[in-house]
């Protein structure tokens, strides 16, 4: 019991260390640059305590739950040998985790405002709502597709750089064709799709697959799934902006 408490205390110190830079930055700017009183100081102290505790629990659970399940599923699929089911799973994982992502919902509704002001759609709540929903499903589809492509790459051992470069070329071409209002949001959408739970799961899946397939190196083949998941949304959002 004492040992467990000690371990918990130690990882809380680690979390506190992770948080220290933010505290220093905010403290410095408040004290020396802005020189304005901080509202609700007690709230901030309590909130910081929550962040430290939360980070500690998250990392504990990560190594107990998320990593093992990602890897055991990768192993099971590799043993089962059914490529189709693996790809269906990959698509569902990408699509399912993205479609409900809060950051994406926020970005989609901002994008619908841009579209309405830019005159691409009618400036009515209904038109904006349907634009935002369409965009969300487009992005979720593109992330599902990205994970499928990434898993195929691991299975076949394709080299990642040429695929990413191909993706970059597509982004550049789409940038020239897409309406210029959508470009900023499209570029941002690549970054917002990958959430805190998706990343560890998808990483464990990739590394697990690469370790259970003969001839694949977990380091060079296991990583890269997230890279695809942050590239395809850019292409698809610009395409969406062109079509609508």
């Amino acid at each position: 019991m004492q040992q467990a408490l000690f371990a918990l205390f130690k990882s809380m110190l680690g979390s506190l260390r992770d948080l220290l830079p933010i505290i220093l930055v905010i403290g410095f700017f408040q004290a020396f640059v802005l020189q304005q009183p901080i509202p609700g100081f007690m709230d901030i102290v309590i909130g910081t305590l929550f962040i430290v505790l939360g980070l500690t629990f998250f990392i504990y659970g990560l190594e107990m739950g998320l990593f093992p399940i990602g890897e055991s599923m990768a192993n099971a699929f590799a043993r089962k040998g059914s490529v189709v089911w693996l790809l269906v799973f990959a698509f569902c994982l990408g699509f399912g985790t993205t479609v409900a992502e809060p950051a994406l919902i926020a970005v989609a509704s901002e994008a619908s405002q841009v579209a309405a002001i830019g005159g691409m759609i009618l400036n009515t709540p209904e038109a904006m709502q349907s634009y935002a929903t369409g965009l969300r499903f487009t992005v979720a589809f593109s992330v599902g597709l990205a994970i499928v492509i990434g898993v195929l790459r691991i299975l076949k051992g394709w080299s990642i750089q040429y695929m990413i470069m191909g993706g970059y070329i597509l982004v550049v071409i789409m940038t020239m064709l897409a309406p210029k209002e959508i470009i900023g949001i499209a570029y941002d959408s690549g970054g917002v799709t990958t959430s805190t739970i998706t990343v560890p799961l998808v990483t464990a899946l990739g590394v697990g697959l690469a370790s259970s397939i003969k001839g694949r190196n977990p380091m060079t083949d296991g990583f890269g799934l997230i890279a695809f998941a942050s590239l395809t949304p850019m292409i698809f959002v610009m395409a969406y902006g062109m079509v609508i």
Binding site: P39, I44, T48, L49, F57, Y60, G61, M64, G65, I69
Partner: peptide
Amino acid sequence: KRVIIGFAYVLIGLSLFLLGLEQALFPLG
């Protein structure tokens, strides 16, 4: 069993983390 406990930790951790962010960091930032 371990996996389920791990998931529960992740859930609790993420909730506390987000709550703390919304209470302390985001308004200030």
